[in-house]
Design a protein around this nucleic acid. Sequence first.
DNA 1: CGCAGTATACTGTATAGACAACCTTATACA
DNA 2: TGTATAAGGTTGTCTATACAGTATACTGCG
Lengths: 243, 243
Amino acid sequence: MTEAQPLYARVKDHILTQIRSGSWAPGARVPSENELVESFGISRMTANRALRELHAEGYVARVPGVGTFVKEPPARGSLMELRNIAEEIEARGHRHSSRIVARAEVTATPALTEDFEMKTPQRLFHIVIVHEENGVPVQIEDRYVNPFAAPRFMAQDFSATTPTAYLVAAVPVDELEHTVEAVMPEPAQQELLGISANEPCLALRRRSWSRGHVVTLATLTYPASRYALYSRYKTSARGTIAQ
Amino acid sequence: MTEAQPLYARVKDHILTQIRSGSWAPGARVPSENELVESFGISRMTANRALRELHAEGYVARVPGVGTFVKEPPARGSLMELRNIAEEIEARGHRHSSRIVARAEVTATPALTEDFEMKTPQRLFHIVIVHEENGVPVQIEDRYVNPFAAPRFMAQDFSATTPTAYLVAAVPVDELEHTVEAVMPEPAQQELLGISANEPCLALRRRSWSRGHVVTLATLTYPASRYALYSRYKTSARGTIAQ
DNA sequence: CGCAGTATACTGTATAGACAACCTTATACA
DNA sequence: TGTATAAGGTTGTCTATACAGTATACTGCG
């Protein structure tokens, strides 16, 4: 079950764990390559690769002749927060309801295998839910979940809790990816949303990571006439970012 | 002037140049590590590093036992940042061109007066530009600009500089608002983009503020088939996400 | 005390060699 | 003909070593 991990990945994991747990605060010194050589019993090139990749991924800063240090977490306001559609609807004073359309355990297709950054196809949870605002469908949530990240996902009662709400509470998210595009919905989707044949939809595709692994891939389809995505934020003052 | 570049960087540059110029089309085979060893006179570890980093950066796909191949470049715009479409297109190794469709000074309609947070209707600069990627239209930029914020806006040569580039340089932006929706374009827009009647578009509406005043309102219309908006970021909280 | 020179630690790059895992193709065999 | 086997190419990882460049700490000299 536990896949044999390359040595450099084990070193990266060890360091990331310390950073994420807070044991090593921003600015703290990360063991030098030679120290990692000693403690892990590896060669310096392997330690170098681990630290170099952590640098490329933005977790640490490296200063030649001095050392490697934990970086300040990025001070960006999240453009699109991980918001719960039920809360959004209720915040507008409307009534949220949902209907579960599909609920199954599937084997990842090649495309999904890549989306989840897996080497080989694995089992995935799959769920399709239609969210309604005052009884009118406003979103199709088509979601795949990594069972290793959220093993108890399928046991939830999604008429009481939305998948987003459960996942946010159950798994710490440390990276998000959003892709937005305009699509013409499939006939099946048109029927679920109760829209006419030529109405475009907004498709928001969201992947979230936790501890370096993809937790979930959600495709949220909104009928154009009933929804728009919105964000407003102040541009953070630059100058505090050490690099 | 020409900085001494590390060997692996030279190999990366060489490959990226071929990809960006189109000499190596998506799907084409990239020289194997051993071929790079021969042609560049380097060791395999150096060739491996070049290809490995290109893989991490998303430019190539690597298949063990088979080879390395040029990946399809994603046609994506940035959702979070105030990016310049010309730069985005050029970053993909494609050619950017633009065509000015309209250029006028107008009086704000009631709706625009509200958008610009003005009490009474004022004069506004208005410009419509079609941006093209390799000669294919990918964006209609329909922009209004507040003359008080950027009085010299209309004097710019927009065949050389995009409006975004000029405004970012000329006016410090300290607040941004984005609204994204799916729309069916007007017939005039269909013609400008050269798309069929039933192709949906992504409409990104962006307002930006400087010192409390609305500087510009831009409506960017992308044909669905040619563009998606993208963002990916690390969430700031590490280890402390309790909710 | 101040300063120059030196030693040391750390990162950055590069090499040569080795072994494993994987895929494709050609070959030999039944 | 169909199948098993072998060979060769490719990526993936790891080691041991080397040298260069940079920053810091120490040491001895003036």
